[in-house]
C-alpha cells in the first residue's frame, strides 16, 4: 500500500537510544522552491508570482562547518569544504564521529578569508577548492564565488527570455548560519537533514529583466544575506502538502503524474501506461508532480514506505 505521510522527511527521530559513541554522520540539503522540490531546469513561479522562473544552475560553498551535539559539545570540521551543486546529489558523508544526539549544525556560505585568497591550482584535482568548470573563482579578486546562481525568467513558459546570473563573493559577505536540527543516532548513523527554501534567495531581487551581477554588492550581497537569514531550516519541521489525491480521478481529468527521485531524475510517468505509477516503487523519498495542460504543475514531496 502506498502511504502518504504528513510530517515527512527523513529524520526518523524515533531514537533508538544510541549506545555506540561512534556514528556515521551524513548531512543532506533538500532544495525546495516553497513547498516544491528544487530541481534544476524545472519551471517555477517567482516569489511575487508574477513570472515563471527556471533555475539553470545553483552552486555554493559551505565552509567552517561544525556540529553541536550531546549537550553542547562542538565537533568542528575545519578542513571540510563542500561545493553544493543543486544539479547533483546534495548529500554529504562527514565521516564517523562520537556524535549521538545532534542539536544543531553551523556552516558558512562561501570560503573563509584565510582560504579565500589562496591559489586554487595548489589543491588536488576534485578538491572543492580546486579549479571548477564552470569556474567558481574570480581571478582578478583572487577570491571564490561564494554562490553562483543562474536562471531564466519569462512571462510565459515558452519564452523564458531573461537571463539572470548572480555570482556573489566577498569576505564581507561571508555569513554564519546555524540550523537547529534535533536528531538522534539510529543504527550507527546520524542523518542531519536541512531544508533549503531556495525561493528565498531572490527575495527583494528584481529578475523581471535580465540581471548580470558578478560582484560583492547589490543583488549579489542581498542574495547571500537572504541565504543566511531566510533559506535554511531543519527538515523535521516540514510537512508535505495534503497528498491525498486520487491518481485515477486525476488521470480521468486528463492529468499526468510523474515521479522523480530527490536529485530530479524521472523515475516514471503515467504516460508510460502503467496502471499506477506507484506500483513496485522502492521505499524512499520522492517528488510527485501532477501536471495538466494549462496549469502550473503541482509538486508534492512524500515518503514512500514500500509495498
Amino acid at each position: 500500500m502506498i502511504t502518504f505521510i504528513r510530517s515527512v522527511l527523513v529524520l526518523l527521530t524515533i531514537a533508538i537510544a544510541a549506545s555506540a559513541q561512534e556514528n556515521q554522520v551524513s548531512f543532506t540539503i533538500q532544495g525546495r522552491m516553497g513547498d516544491a522540490p528544487f530541481v534544476i531546469n524545472t519551471m517555477y513561479r517567482t516569489l511575487a508570482d508574477d513570472l515563471y522562473l527556471k533555475p539553470t544552475s545553483l552552486r555554493y560553498y559551505l565552509s567552517q562547518i561544525s556540529i553541536t551535539h550531546d549537550g553542547g559539545k562542538v565537533t568542528p570540521f575545519p578542513s571540510l569544504y563542500i561545493l553544493v551543486d543543486h544539479s547533483a546529489p546534495t548529500s554529504y558523508q562527514l565521516g564517523t564521529h562520537p556524535i549521538t544526539r545532534v542539536e544543531s549544525i553551523t556552516f558558512h556560505i562561501g570560503v573563509d578569508s584565510a582560504r579565500n585568497h589562496l591559489d586554487p591550482a595548489t589543491y588536488a584535482p576534485y578538491h572543492p577548492l580546486s579549479p571548477q568548470d564552470p569556474s567558481m573563482h574570480w581571478g582578478w579578486t583572487s577570491g571564490y564565488k561564494f554562490m553562483a546562481y543562474n536562471l531564466l525568467t519569462g512571462a510565459d513558459t515558452a519564452a523564458m527570455k531573461y537571463v539572470t546570473e548572480i555570482h556573489a563573493l566577498g569576505d564581507a559577505n561571508y555569513h554564519r548560519i546555524t540550523v537547529d536540527v534535533p536528531v538522534d543516532a539510529r543504527n550507527g548513523k546520524v542523518s542531519i537533514d536541512v531544508i533549503a527554501n531556495l525561493a528565498e534567495l531572490l527575495r527583494g531581487i528584481n529578475v523581471s529583466k535580465s540581471l548580470f551581477e558578478h560582484s560583492d554588492e547589490g543583488p549579489a550581497k542581498l542574495m547571500l544575506e537572504n541565504a543566511a537569514q531566510r533559506v535554511f531550516s531543519a527538515a523535521t519541521t516540514t510537512s508535505v502538502s495534503d497528498a491525498s489525491f486520487s491518481e485515477d480521478a486525476w488521470k480521468e481529468q486528463g492529468g499526468m503524474v510523474s515521479i522523480y527521485d530527490m536529485q530530479g531524475g524521472l523515475i516514471r510517468a503515467s504516460s508510460d501506461g502503467v496502471p499506477s505509477i506507484f506500483n513496485g516503487l522502492r521505499a524512499g523519498v520522492y517528488v510527485v508532480v501532477r501536471s495538466m495542460v494549462g496549469r502550473t504543475p503541482h509538486h508534492t514531496l512524500y515518503l514512500h514506505d514500500g509495498e
Binding site: P120, A121, D133, P134, H137, G139, S142
Partner: peptide
C-alpha cells in the same frame, strides 16, 4: 587594483576573462 598576490594566480585571470581567453583552465 593589486588584487592578485602571485604570478601563478595571475595566470588564471586571462584564461577565465570573457574578453581575453574566455576559457576554463580544466
Amino acid at each position: 587594483e593589486g588584487g592578485v598576490p602571485t604570478l601563478e594566480m595571475q595566470v588564471q585571470v586571462p584564461i577565465a576573462e570573457h574578453n581575453e581567453f574566455d576559457f576554463n583552465i580544466l
